[in-house]
Amino acid sequence: MAFHPNLDPELRAAIEQTPPPVFDLAALSPGELPGLRAQMNALLAAAPPAETDVVIENRQVPGPDGEPDIRVRIYRPAESGEARPGLYWIHGGGMIIGAPEIDDATMVGFVERLGIVVVSVDYRLAPEHQHPAPVEDCYAGLAWTAKAAGELGIDVARLAVGGASAGGGLAAATVLLARDRGGPDLAFQLLVCPMLDDRNITPSSQEFTDAVVWDRSANLFGWTALLGDRIGAGDVSPYAAPARATDLAGLPPAFIDVGELEVFRDEDMDYALRLARAGVSTEFHLYPGAFHGFDMMVPDTELSRRAQAARLSALKRAFRL
């Protein structure tokens, strides 16, 4: 593929040396998704475990009313402790793939650097489970986390929600649900390149028909998987596509970041601006020359280190560390 002229030189050198895998989602049938997921899970299983003292535990917790239990993956410091800050995390994957394990390294890093407890939810995926199943799973896991805060060693007054990509969109939607359902109360929302708008009408969503990761066709595929033929319709819920929300007042302080060279750029910028206008304290970062998921794919570049440090700094302030 031809690279965008604004692509950061250090990122460009890295992906020229090790090109990322390419998945043509537009040519993928829903019946082929289980195979793609199995391939990803096999790669995760083959990866050597991280050398860490962080305690990692999987649990089954109550799902939404009338639905099966859901799995959460809990990350805790090795040293026992009480009243630690808590981060409820939602993984990415375009609504169609992914599992908590894809973020193991990031979650372990948060625990090691901040001394917090992380709970990551394994929500149901589209298209087998369309909206509202994924966000309801996320909300149910959050409700359990708040209820079990004492057992987990979490200070419920310092509980944040975060996520990346589709997980960032689900995090924003879960925060909206928590406000509208009267809890749990949340201290912060960390939205990393969030997937927010099913309409795909912003300039950036139309510009990046070719991208290093997650181009326009992939985005249309993901939203169609979640919403079916309702994608772009006038009655799509803000709990599916948070950019649809007309009232953003009363939400917890927010951190949003996004790369310059990705479809989510404009919807994320707009959401950050609307949060600020609604009286929500908001920090926003636009990373020049960066593509979607750049810091996860190429973590050892100067731009990636800046992004990682900014998120850590934001969490420290939110948790009063």
Results as ranks from 00 to 15, higher is better:
R317H: 10
A149E: 13
V61I: 12
D103K: 08
H129K: 10
D104P: 11
A45P: 14
I154H: 05
M195L: 08
A211Y: 03
R265W: 00
V192H: 00
M297H: 12
D180G: 07
E136G: 08
L251E: 07
G141V: 03
A78D: 14
Y75K: 03
V258Y: 01
C193G: 12
D198N: 14
R305A: 06
F3T: 09
A126N: 12
T202V: 06
A26E: 12
T282F: 00
Y75H: 01
I56T: 12
A290G: 11
T202H: 08
P5A: 03
E112L: 05
D197P: 04
V22N: 13
A172C: 00
R158M: 03
P49I: 00
A27K: 15
G92K: 07
S80E: 13
L315H: 08
V108H: 06
Q308F: 03
Y139K: 01
V213I: 15
R305D: 06
P252D: 07
T18S: 14
F264W: 02
L25P: 14
D300I: 03
P21K: 05
L11Y: 09
P30H: 09
D257Y: 00
A14I: 09
E16Y: 10
L33A: 01
A50I: 10
R230C: 09
G289Y: 02
L191Y: 09
A318I: 07
V55T: 14
F264H: 05
T209S: 11
V298M: 01
L275W: 10
L227N: 15
D257C: 01
L125N: 10
W214K: 04
A46I: 05
A173Q: 02
R71E: 15
M1G: 14
I231H: 09
M95S: 13
D122H: 08
D69E: 15
I15W: 07
I56H: 09
E262I: 03
I96K: 05
L251Q: 06
P30A: 08
H292P: 08
T282Y: 08
N6C: 13
M297E: 07
P48D: 11
A13N: 10
V22A: 10
P299N: 02
P85T: 04
V72E: 06
I116D: 14
V135Y: 05
L114N: 12
F188N: 09
M1Q: 14
M297Q: 10
D266I: 03
V263T: 13
